[in-house]
């Protein structure tokens, strides 16, 4: 199989998966008890207002027609309109997504780097105090709730030491950098403004460490286990016997071969990261998709919930596809 046919088959496989996801979201939101329109209003709403409301949202159409409109809409990038202000949900998503993406990317980098470093260290010091301490650390961080760690860090670094802000994304006294990507750190760099970069980084540190630490446990364990396996392999010993340096053997031979399962986990964890973002974003008042979703759930804004969940779903499928392709690129045995 060539790389091209591999990629094509992956892309084609994604289509039924996304269809299934879209259908599931649609069905679930409609089979749960309660009329979304009625739930949205207080008791005793005027039937005329209610009918008008249903009509604007398309809830008065037959269910199959709603389903069809929904699918066609998503194909065109239209996620429906919000019950709150009748504004397109895609506008909200585009406005909020960069914040979530920025936090997710930095947390993932933090988690993967820390996970790889500690995992490699543990595997090379197998069955020593270092190894056991790192394993304990990975279990503790894996088990600790996001908001708990977040609040501990907030208490320590923001309230007690006063070094970092407790929450939000940017200092209220300053204008954020002009929007290009919507990610403040990158926009600051693009604008060439070091001052704005420092501000955005300061606001990122605590949420990144919180989310990254929670995530790194699984990477530590995975790296350690896979490294223990590859370190025992013949080609690692053979590489040592050829006089390759410890660094080349550890990273170029053992870690490189242990990396594929870790890469898969990065893809899977990115999905978990987006879900985790809901808690982290709430803890740090981070104005991303997570807080948006929580806010919409609070207002029983069904169309917005549907749109956000679908957006998350498509994002995760694309990520999985990306990881699959990267997999093939990295492992010559899959490429062929």
């Amino acid at each position: 199989m060539t790389l091209r046919s591999y990629v094509t088959s992956r892309v084609l496989l994604m289509i039924p998966m996304v269809m299934l996801l879209l259908t599931l979201v649609f069905v679930i939101l409609r089979v749960i008890p309660g009329d979304p329109a009625l739930l949205h209003f207080e008791k005793g709403v005027d039937p005329v207002v209610l009918a008008e409301f249903r009509h604007r949202l398309g809830l008065d159409k037959p269910i199959l027609e709603q389903y069809f409109d929904y699918l066609v809409g998503i194909l065109r990038g239209d996620f429906g309109i919000s019950m709150q202000d009748y504004a397109p949900i895609s506008t909200h998503l585009i406005g909020r997504f960069p914040a979530t993406l920025e936090l997710s990317i930095y947390s993932m980098i933090f988690a993967v780097l820390l996970g790889l470093a500690l995992g490699v260290k543990a595997s090379k010091n197998y069955d020593t105090v270092t190894d056991h301490s790192i394993r304990l650390f990975s279990i503790v961080t894996y088990a600790i709730p996001v908001f708990f760690l977040g609040m501990v860090l907030q208490f320590f670094f923001s309230i007690w030491l006063g070094w970092l802000p407790t929450g939000r994304r940017f200092d209220a006294h300053w204008m954020p950098p002009p929007t290009v990507t919507g990610m403040y750190t990158i926009d600051s760099i693009l604008a060439g403004d070091l001052f704005l970069l420092v501000i955005s980084v300061r606001y990122l540190i605590l949420p990144t460490i919180t989310l990254g630490t929670i995530l790194c446990g699984i990477f530590i364990r995975l790296t350690r286990t896979n490294m223990l396996e590859t370190l025992r392999m013949d080609f690692v010993t053979a590489a040592k016997a050829r006089g390759l340096s410890d660094g080349t053997v550890t990273y170029g031979y053992a870690l490189r071969n242990a990396f594929l399962p870790i890469l898969t986990m990065i893809g899977i964890q990115f999905a978990a990261l987006l879900a985790g973002a809901i808690l982290t974003e709430t803890t740090f008042s981070w104005p991303g998709l997570g807080t948006y979703l929580v806010d919409r759930i609070g207002h029983r804004d069904y169309t917005a919930i549907q749109g956000t969940v679908v957006f998350f779903g498509i994002l995760v499928s694309m990520l999985t596809l990306f990881v699959d392709i990267l997999y093939a690129y990295l492992d010559p045995r899959i490429r062929l």
């Binding site: 013949d234 053979a238 050829r242 006089g243 492992d331």
Partner: peptide, 22 residues
């Protein structure tokens, strides 16, 4: 490390697993 490969070479039993697949 300097001696390995330069002064003393070692050939392993199983050639199928002795090379880095990557």
């Amino acid at each position: 490390r300097v001696l390995r490969g330069k002064e003393i070479a070692y050939i392993f039993q199983d050639p199928m697993t002795s090379l880095n697949p990557m």
